[in-house]
Amino acid sequence: MPINPVLASYSDLAYGTALVLYLFAMVLHAGEYAAGRVPVTAAGGRITAQGTGSVATLPPPTNVTEGGVTDGAPSRSKAERIGRSAVALTGLAVLVHASSLALRGAAIGRVPWANMYEFTSAVCFVAVAGWLVVLYRQRNAPEGSASPAGPAPLRRLGVFVLLPIVVLMFLGGTVLYAQATPLIPALSSYWITIHVSAAATATGILLVSGVASVLYLLGTGGSTRIAARLPASTSLDRLAYRTAVLALPIWTFAIITGAIWAEAAWGRYWGWDPKETCALVAWVVYAGYLHARATAGWRGPRAAWINVGGFGMMLFNLFFVNIVVAGLHSYAGI
């Protein structure tokens, strides 16, 4: 299958465009975050009890009008408007990003995630797309289940979700960048579609989960100034948990299909190759996270720390193991 260099260069162009758009969206979100000041008095109700073993109970977040507009005017506050345009821009960016992936796939005639540049791009795409799904579902949540104030606006986390995306994509486009090439023999297998797609999907979702847990820890860490601007910590905890629950079976699937592929490619389904080992370690950490959520005394910050550690392990596996440790996965190349 020959490479189509024209499509490949359009793909690169779309990648750069998406990165710039993400950057703009992040700046807008930062503006929203700065404008969306919440009176500190309201913060008391935002930090919930945790670790008690029972369902946390608290008064619904005090109804705080965004941006301090208190006259009940129907017009949207400034923060609200900035936030909405940030989301719109993110949506546009994700479309451009999708076209970058599609063009690269068309240029090389296979799934475009076989080296670190391509893989990082796919992970970021899944993370942002997943993030937009979260926002969409929050907006469309049934009225009855929301507190009168409406669910705490997760949207305000946009800046924190986009920050790692921008950093990863910047690294991907510079340090990790690789020209479009056909696959080496070791990767020519339909398993690449199955195994790596699953790995990228799970990693992208876990990125969102990790961000939620980091913010949860910031919010419960004692600084009311930070906490006051974040959504209720229960929302963050719930977001982290539900994304992790979604991602863990996908991650399990990625490891199992990796093992099936390894049986066909390397002569054994499991051989403690560094990437395999680290994938298992990350899996164990996430299993620990879910167990911790079900163990009295481990819920709350402790569980959140485990989740953050799990994502640290994923990043470690992606970057350190690929670049520094020599293993069978190393051909994936930079």
């Binding site: 369902v55 109970t57 977040p61 949540a141 009855g144 289940s145 929301a146 507190s147 669910p151 959504p231």
Partner: peptide, 14 residues
Amino acid sequence: GRVSDADQPGAGVL
């Protein structure tokens, strides 16, 4: 009478 989820401000997310 009908609000059932008062303890879960984030319910409905996802």
